[in-house]
Each structure stands twice: as structure tokens, then as C-alpha cells.
Nucleic acid binder design. Sequence first.
DNA 1: CGCATTTGACCTGCGC
DNA 2: GCGCAGGTCAAATGCG
Length: 341
Amino acid sequence: MSNQEKDSNNPYNHYDPFNYNHHHEMDRSCFQFFNDNNNSSELVQNHHHHPQSLQAAGFDMPSSSYMSFTDCLHGSMDYSILSRAFDMSCSSPEVISQIDDASKKASAGGVGESVGTSAENPSTPNSSISSSSNEAAAAEEDSLKSKKDKQPKGSEEGEEEDKSKKATKTKKKEKRQREPRFAFLTKSEIDHLEDGYRWRKYGQKAVKNSPYPRSYYRCTTQKCSVKKRVERSFQDPSIVITTYEGQHNHQCPATLRGNAAGLFSTSPLASAARPNLPHEFFTQFLPMNNSITQGQPSNSMLYSNLTTHHHDHHQQRQLQVPDFGLLQDLVSSFSHKQMNP
DNA sequence: CGCATTTGACCTGCGC
DNA sequence: GCGCAGGTCAAATGCG
């Protein structure tokens, strides 16, 4: 197959995630906030523009809805603050994009997809608390589950094992919720960007259609189930795709040590509560969530939260009202801070 | 020695 | 049902 053929068949070939080919001013880091503005038809129409690397990372990215971060901010905030926030100890990577993937298309093993009905119940903007707690519970359950899955191997055999397996299977069917995910595209030569937390690598896999492997990291803090995946964009090897999954239930070690504090203190954020996670950092800048649902890309940074129901046999991406549970917590927190500085 | 990384095996879900 | 790909585990290995 020739490259041209490949290109024509490649649904992502038109994707130019950062307008690299059009905007050469890469000193203007572009954040992309993916828009779930309830205009599902538009998003569905455009879902074929997803960059392959990101899709491999588990993201659905409506190309129509990305915009430069500076545009998002429309001058109200210096984007460099954000990139600085992620700069940490690495060699000035440029954070290019963030994608919220709270409910990526159900595909990954382990944590799994939402089967049945309860998990499909997207949190409305009014259900943030329960949503957040559910996520946390799900995370814990997941980690327990995976342990359970493995335990019988070493200890018990035969019936016990079968029973255990069956039990876990049923459990999995009962409740499967994916942690919210946030991906950051970062222009950096360093794969594993320092973000203030301590991570332990627990796996590495070759990524299909990409010469670059994907690394899996887990937060080393006890009882913290946050994971992250790091991979390079095969389209632009200078771009690192970092995907965070879950939410830290502890303070950033770097913050405690004062490192991150120093970093953040260089920004106007210094007086604000420091986010535990980059995505939290971002969400602190999100506008009120009604602008998310109303979808005024020209006015606001928008989060996407695309969901594909795997049981939709026509592979039609069905967009839900996003699960703004986590988001709303953060957004409301942010707006509260804005209202009451 | 303790902790982090590497890496092959294994598990799971999905598409055909 | 089978094969593939993503994700995870855990023993082996490396390193400070």
C-alpha cells in the first residue's frame, strides 16, 4: 500500500492537531480543549478526524472543536502560565493540548467500559458529588479487582479459582466505571514529564501503528490509584501524550517539598489553591459549566467528554451529556474563588 | 538493601 | 470462537 493510499484510507490523515502545518509560531503553545457543546451531530460528523495516536491513546477528538488555548483565553490569561505550570523540571516542554476523556470509548481491558445502565447514567451538572465519589470508589474497586484477579493464581487453585473468577466477572458486569481521563499533549523531548508526583512504571507496551512504546505509570503514593500513560505521537515524535487517569487523593509531594510551590508561585495562581493534577490545574481556568453546555467556543474553553457506547453496534459515537462530576467540582471551586477572591 | 525499571506472560474486551 | 490490541502483573534485573 502506498503512502498515498494509506493517507487516503487513514481517517486521521487530515488531522493536524496543532496546526503545525499552518501555524509555525510554535512559541504560541496551543491548548486544545475539546468541545462537547451538546452539538453531538457536529461532533459525530467530525469524529473521523481523530489523530491516530490519540485514538490509540483512547481518545475521541472532534477536530472541529479544538482551538488554541490563547484563543480560549482571549487575552484574559497568559497561556505561558499554563505551560510553565507543566514545565516543572523538564526542559521546557510546551503543553499543547488537554483532552478530557472521562469516558473514552470502552475498549481498555481491566477498568473496562460501562456495561448495563447504571454506569451509563451520566452525571448531570447537578450530580457532581456523587459522581466524584463514585469514581473514587470505582478506582478502589478496580484496584482490588485486579488484585483479586491475580490472587488465586498464586494461592488457591481449582474450584476456588473458578469461583473467584466468576465472582469477579459478575462484579465487573455489575459496575464498571472508567476514571476520568485527561490527556496532555506536550512538546518535549522527555517522555516522562515531571509533574510533581512520584510515579512507578509498571508496564510498557508497543503501540499499534506507532514506533513508540506506551509506558504505564502508577502513582507511588499508597492508596492513590492515579495512573498515567505516556506515549509519543507517532505523527510528531516531538509531542508527548500524557494521559492521567483518576484523581490523586493526596497532596502533591513536590508541593510539600516546595518545588511545585516555587513553580506555581511564579504565576498568578500562586495565591490560589494549587491543583493536585494538571487537569485540575486546567479546570481551574474553566468558565462556568453552563458555558460548556451552551458551547460557545469563541468564548470559552471547552471540555470534551465524548462517550462511545461500545454496545452501539454501528460504532456511532453517541455523545452524552458529559460527566461533569469531577469537572464541576473543580469548576465551581474555581468560580467560587473568582467570585470570592 | 531497597526501590525503580524492564519485560514476558497473562487477562480482558472487542471486532470479525 | 478466534485473533488482536490494550492494559496489568510480577519476577528478574539494575541502580544508587
